[in-house]
Nucleic acid binder design. Structure first.
Lengths: 226, 226
DNA sequence: CGGGGGCGTCAAGATCCCGTAAAGCGGCCC
DNA sequence: GGGCCGCTTTACGGGATCTTGACGCCCCCG
């Protein structure tokens, strides 16, 4: 669910955008003044921002500058002004796109999608890798390394490890694990857990008999610790 | 010095852009056909691409798709068409901006700066040519070489190889592969994978029976390793 | 002190998955 | 119309993986 922050002071535009975006599965927050916009952006961390330049309390360019101080979320500027000077000013102040009113909803939505797509690609450079002192888990590549050798895991082993690592630090109940990895029908086959946990420890822990990262909490479940 | 690739078939526009961009310190490469454009993009690694949709040899959208296969450089589309449908199509095909002709040079340059700025945040690490010790894959030219001889691949073989190489190092699930290459309806025909993987290995691996680059992870999927 | 529940370990059989070869089939080009 | 090419389908041996049962340990509790 993509979070969008819409900043505009005209109620009818706000309403039209809110409806159109909500229908398409966006999570919409709105603000009708510059100050409220900056507060909302700080609170909600929207993935994309739609900014109307004609605000009552402050210049749109100032809002943009305020956002760019700490956020790199893509900003699409809306404006009634078609002056090329205005466009240049907004784009150079950090806007990612500039749409003049009145605008077609189809085109606007396409530009929004483009902005979101690009925004999503940017901070993606770092793989979600989890490191411990005895092994490394790459959740995106589904790869596990110990020392510098790659460790081969079976689908079930990986399923358990993934579930535990995604909830690192937290306790994962036995039933949740079984439901996630084997399916709802196996919620009582706690024996499987013991077999596969042992297997994972043998493959990953330095000393499998005294596990330091794949911890069992007797009677409750298991926990992954970095 | 920012590298820009300008793709257009109208000499006067090409000339105008070349002059304007050069004066402002950009390093300009030009191409006047889709094929030349893809080659130039693969060679020069431009940081931003300006693409006119009206090309003589292929549809602009196809050029865009060809670029997006391996490059994440921002693309600004130029077009004489103002139809919202055209804009939507281009933006959804991976364009970052859409400027209709005739356009103001100031605005265009501002949009270019915005695109470059954003592109700089997401460094383009993707190399269209992937090399292993037994074969070479050129994602831009859709060509595979082994030793110094070109290897002929069927469309299906190429589809699989491309998908795997694009996700190099990562594990690609069987369903994802089938969906991408054969379509959503074939998500369970896992047998195809075995047949075609064997074929690819026979054509590419030095010792097809002990593959070193096209690895299978039993029960999960396949992985390409350099 | 004895019993029981929960846990870890091991190993063997059943099951599923993979690699390989080869044949059938349809489309395309000459 | 014939031949070639690529896609689909079948069959089967071998290997990887999952399941299952047996056993011993530890800790808590009666």
């Amino acid at each position: 669910m993509t979070r969008v922050l819409v900043i505009d002071d005209e109620p009818q535009i706000l309403r039209a955008l809110r409806i159109n975006l909500s229908v398409r599965g966006y999570e919409v927050t709105t603000a009708s003044s510059g100050g409220a916009a900056l507060r909302a952006a700080a609170e909600r961390h929207p993935e994309v921002i739609v900014l109307d330049l004609g605000l009552p309390d402050m210049d749109g360019i100032e809002v943009l500058a305020g956002l760019r101080g700490w956020s790199s979320a893509p900003v699409i500027v809306l404006s009634a002004r078609t002056d090329s000077a205005d466009k240049v000013a907004a784009l150079d102040a950090g806007a990612d796109d500039y749409v003049t009113k009145p605008f077609g909803m189809d085109e606007f939505l396409a530009r929004l999608r483009a902005a979101v797509r690009r925004g999503a690609a940017a901070p993606d450079t770092a793989d979600p890798v989890v490191v411990t002192d005895s092994f490394t888990v790459d959740l995106a590549a589904k790869k596990v390394t110990k020392g510098d050798a790659e460790v081969h895991l079976t689908p079930t082993e990986w399923g358990m490890l993934e579930m535990l690592v995604r909830n690192k630090g937290k306790l994962v109940g036995q039933k949740e694990l079984l439901r996630e990895v084997w399916g709802p029908a196996y919620a009582t086959e706690t024996h499987y857990l013991r077999v596969y946990l042992a297997q994972l420890r043998r493959k990953l822990e330095d000393d499998p008999s005294t596990p330091r990262h794949l911890i069992t909490e007797a009677g409750m479940g298991y926990r992954f610790q970095e």
